[in-house]
């Protein structure tokens, strides 16, 4: 799997794609593979506050559950509603169609602390 160069990654296996002051958040290919068949995605409401490194939701498979940690701080401005009825999209297209939330970032400089695609790939591969 190749990890998009234009994303930044966390060690908890989330990605963020920055466009202006908006960060689109998702789960990495590695994360969905480790979890297996995803059955439920618990996402915050629009307007919720996110803080870097703090849980903003959770994702569940049959045999596992994992919190989703926000890679950036800010306010949730959009939520991917399709995942409520079609969680399997997270297994099918984790870096694209199955994004989780969009956040209006309050501290864009935070992304500097995140991993590059190459660093993340090395980290996920070693885990």
């Amino acid at each position: 799997m190749t990890y998009p160069e234009n994303f930044r990654y966390t060690k908890e296996h989330e990605w963020v794609r920055v466009e202006g002051d908006t960060g689109t958040i998702g789960l990495t290919f590695h994360a969905q593979k480790e979890l297996g068949d995803i059955v439920f995605v618990d996402l915050p409401k629009v307007g919720a506050k996110a803080e870097q490194g703090k849980p903003i939701g959770a994702v569940e498979s049959v045999k596992a559950a994992s919190d989703i940690y926000s890679p950036v701080s800010g306010e949730v401005i959009a939520v991917n509603e399709t995942l409520a009825t079609a969680p399997e999209k997270l297994n099918a297209d984790p870096h694209g169609e199955a994004w989780l939330v969009k956040i209006r970032m309050s501290a864009p400089a935070e992304t500097a602390s995140l991993l590059s695609a190459a660093d993340y790939e090395a980290y996920a591969g070693a885990e």
């Binding site: 059955v39 439920f40 498979s61 049959v62 045999k63 559950a65």
Partner: peptide, 9 residues
């Protein structure tokens, strides 16, 4: 819905 339960969570 076992992901609510102690053996997973």
């Amino acid at each position: 819905l076992s992901a609510r339960e102690q053996h997973i969570r």
